[in-house]
């Protein structure tokens, strides 16, 4: 029977989700205690879609993505539970060699800070081509030509000349374009962009986001966009998950999250963002307090101490998943409108 399965067309075996993250838990074991960086996070990403992961610093957004790539900080980080399925293969059971094949080739990643993400000792050309040479098993000249095309594609003028530049000779926006070109060299099916515009000027931000969107259309890839900027999410994403203290608070389509938020945290986030339509006289509403210490043993809902609706019931246990509409779920025991 095995042989029959082998010969089945790939399309029939594959589910339509490119990436399924199922009850993922990743902990960081520090000298001072265990940080529950990612705590029971689940989401799905269909081919060609864009998923936004929103949350404050330390909410576990980046660690979720590092878990997907198998790049949790070593030797302290460990994925302790859950499953990550990419193209119907369980990433956690892959050998480190197989993970190397997936990283950079199937899943590309763009990091937050273009100033520190490029190796200062190597030329742009070397940094663009090295992954391609390894994954595609091609000669250096071929990779070089492909890299020039890629630099062209991300809008870097005089690409051929730039290949020989060192990172310090480029501006921040240019460097981030180079980072994107690096991530896209092997035409990955999934691009993870971890705060790709946070370190850039606002005008450059818009350019980079436009670039990502147009490249996504051209190359038909899925994107996970990690950000703390709700404006970026609204402009680029289809699905959104809102994270807090390592947990998913609310998940849904962009419209669900922006127009029909159910979780007090999401509502608080939306109220703390200035908007053109809002009453100018009305002050912005910050969320008081600070995120909890992830090393502490958190009872119940982690947002409870900062929540306007919190009461004793919230301390009992972490709230069950509730569904507002199909595809829109949230974790709160209160009914908030």
């Amino acid at each position: 029977m095995r042989s029959i399965q082998k010969w089945m067309p790939v399309e029939l075996v594959m589910a339509d989700s490119l990436l399924v993250v199922d009850r993922l838990k990743s902990y960081i074991y520090t000298r001072y205690g265990v940080v529950r960086a990612v705590n029971d996070v689940s989401f799905e990403l269909a081919e060609g879609d864009t998923l936004g992961i929103v949350g404050e610093s330390g909410s576990g957004k980046s660690m979720t993505c590092m878990s997907i790539l198998g790049l949790l900080p070593q030797p302290f980080g460990k994925m302790v539970a859950g499953r990550i399925r990419f193209r119907n293969e369980d990433l956690h059971t892959q050998s480190s060699r197989q993970m190397q094949q997936i990283r950079g080739k199937e899943i590309g990643m763009v990091f937050q800070d273009p100033m520190t993400s490029l190796n200062p000792f190597l030329t742009v050309g070397t940094q663009l081509t090295e992954g391609y040479v390894v994954h595609q098993q091609v000669a250096k000249q071929e990779a070089w030509q492909h890299a020039i095309d890629m630099l062209d594609k991300v809008g870097i003028p005089e690409a051929e000349k730039r290949m020989l530049s060192y990172p310090h000779e480029l501006s921040g926006g240019m460097r981030q374009r180079v980072m994107i070109a690096i991530a896209l060299m092997c035409s990955p099916a999934l691009l993870i962009a971890d705060e790709p515009t946070s370190a850039l000027d606002v005008t450059i931000q818009a350019q980079i986001l436009e670039l990502l969107k147009s490249l996504q259309r051209q190359m038909k890839m899925s994107i996970i966009l990690i950000t703390h900027d709700l404006g970026i999410v609204a402009a680029t994403c289809k699905q959104v998950i809102v994270m807090y203290a390592g947990r998913v608070m609310e998940a849904g389509s962009v419209d669900d999250i922006f127009y029909r938020p159910k979780h007090p945290y999401t509502i608080g986030l939306l109220q703390s963002v200035p908007s053109l339509e809002a009453d100018r006289e009305k002050p912005l509403q910050p969320i008081d307090g600070n995120p909890p210490d992830l090393m502490a043993d958190i009872q119940g809902c982690p947002f409870h101490p900062r929540c306007a609706y919190g009461d004793a019931a919230c301390l009992q246990e972490f709230p069950q998943q509730r569904t507002a509409t199909t595809g829109h779920s949230f974790y709160c025991c209160k009914d908030v409108e």
Partner: peptide, 9 residues
Amino acid sequence: TVARAKGLP
């Protein structure tokens, strides 16, 4: 980290 994310040996 970027170098690792590229899948380099």
